[in-house]
Design a protein around this nucleic acid. Structure first.
Lengths: 337, 337
DNA sequence: CTGAAAGCGCTTACAG
DNA sequence: CTGAAAGCGCTTACAG
């Protein structure tokens, strides 16, 4: 693998002249330029960007940490980020934290040592050490979808409180009274906010004594266990809200289990662009966010900040949820009970 | 941002001693070690891995180019790759080629200049320039799911020919005779192989005169257009095979369009782990591959090769497809016609 | 229009 | 057990 000196030698010029040709910078005579280009082609020379990165302290690289790219919510966010990065000339290090603070911190330190210019993170927890570690290195961060106990960090997130309020109210308007929320962990802002919105809608409707929140994790197994408990309790809910699509997948495993003899007409309402897979359920409501745009916006805010490090206004972008009814048959209400 | 010299000065030692502490290499007296560790902590020192990468010509970084991470098939492959990379201490640059040779080549060159150690690529085309460019730099490549006109490159792929054969035969056994294949492009190996398997099953059953292959692209719009053409043709098929899940999504847009008055009992058969979304269709068959394992295996073959550059045996791993029947109601056969 | 020197942050190889 | 020198591949800043 040839380096800039090999090319320079072959073309009979100095390395800096090769550099000028590569970067189209300053004047190089046509004759010298073509000699250099010939040498580059003959040697299959590919400039090593680690050199400039060392000097300039800019790698044009960003770290992207989501909890699990397998979740279609994050998949689409990541695609938005990647498209923005492609346009802006950045490259992406992709990491999955699996909702683990340890893994998140480990990735953070590795990415820092790789000299990423900035971070896009869906923090595993409202109080994440990773962010402080990054801030000590004065690298910009934009949070994805989740708030944090730190007012100085940019964030692009969905309006989880209002989303939960709308979804709950929608079920209440359909005459549901026994509505249960299968939620994520108390340490994740989206779960906290979704509980808040759910509570507000229940209270407004005079149903506060029916408020029933299960706190679990954003994964299949937790959804399964919470649904099992909720449905085997004394008073069976007529509607279940799953706080994210992974919880919904677990809940569906319970709802579709014939042996448990659970009535088919329990309504399921789901956050976060559920793979329509689940439209198999007779009564389904989904509420989702513009995830691709979330990725695009977050990435562009980060690049903006990298280009204008002096700007200090903190950006808090809150995107609306959109209600999507996907009942495959019949009305999603508890009238048949 | 402190560097190794700052730490050395603060601890009253030479930079090389700091290096030894960071890397736990060779003997450092306990006293000196603790002085260095104290200085590291006080200065929030994070070692810059670009330095070692420059010297060693190893970045511990790999380039991953898939066509579109939004496709759940690739999402899962990517997750497998990422898990393998995490364990092996590698970091991943994620790129989407969108089935474009130009974008693939552009990414390839950028990744080369970033000094990735190796590549995992789902090539956009059976004759991809990108691969030659990479081979000139003597960097290892493992192909994901797609063959190429080059016998020397490792590949981990699904057995598309046999998968298509099985899926077609399954439909034939259900008494379907008018089966149409909505396929990808003639330049992508999975499309070529799926056409081959489909043809073999049709011929074996004496249905070669019914063989009907549409060549398009692996995207929604192409699936929509091909399905439209197939269903509005003279003889309506009783079964449609979609060569990948994006084509299936387009086809479903046609099948579910009431205005076109297309009979509901047309059977749909789909490759590549369709988001079960589509189980809404009354008659659905899906055939899928172990995608997560594909990612894991491909990554591990790449790391193996990086650790043993001398080994030259080419690996061609072919993974089996698995048939999954997902009819939501009634038998998926054309008996009702 | 072209070039020699210095330095980005590390670690290998050698010396003591 | 500790350290001084050299070099990985570039480009900035200066000189001519």
């Amino acid at each position: 693998m040839a380096n800039i000196r090999d090319v320079a030698r072959k073309a009979g010029v100095a390395p800096i002249t090769v550099s000028r040709v590569i970067n189209d910078s300053e004047y190089v005579s046509a004759e010298v330029r073509s000699r250099v280009e010939k040498a580059i082609a003959e040697l299959n020379y590919v400039p090593n960007r680690l050199g400039p990165s060392m000097r300039s302290k800019r790698s044009n690289t960003i770290g992207l940490i989501v909890t699990d790219i397998t979740n279609p919510f994050w998949t689409t966010v990541v695609r938005g980020v990647e498209d923005a990065a492609y346009k802006a000339g950045y490259h992406l290090f992709l990491c999955n934290s699996d909702e683990s603070l340890e893994k998140e911190l480990e990735y953070t330190e590795l990415l820092l040592s790789r000299q990423v210019d900035g971070f896009l993170i869906a923090p595993a927890n409202t109080s994440s050490d990773s962010l402080e570690v990054i801030q000590k290195q004065k690298k910009p961060i934009v949070l994805l979808d989740r708030r944090i106990n730190n007012p100085d960090i940019d964030v692009v997130r969905g309006d989880s409180e209002r989303g939960a309020y709308l979804l709950t109210k929608y079920l209440i308007d359909l005459k549901h009274e026994k509505i249960v929320l299968l939620n994520g962990s108390q340490t994740v802002s989206t779960a906290i906010d979704r509980a808040e919105g759910y509570r507000r809608a229940m209270t407004e409707a005079g149903l506060e004594e029916n408020t029933n929140i299960f706190w679990g994790e954003f994964n299949h197994d937790s959804g399964y266990l919470m649904a099992l408990e909720a449905l085997q309790g004394e008073t069976r809910p007529t509607a279940i809200i799953a706080a994210n699509n992974f919880i919904a997948i677990g809940a569906i495993r319970v709802l579709d289990n014939f042996e448990l003899s659970i009535p088919e007409d329990i309504s399921l309402a789901v956050f976060d662009g559920l793979p329509e897979a689940i439209a198999v359920r007779p009564f389904l409501t989904a509420i989702a966010q513009p995830t691709y745009e979330m990725g695009l916006m977050a990435a562009n805010i980060l690049f903006e900040r990298l280009n204008n490090p002096s700007k200090t206004d903190v950006k808090k972008i809150i995107l609306p949820f959109e209600l999507k009814i996907r009942s495959s048959s019949g009305p999603p209400n508890p009238g048949t009970h």
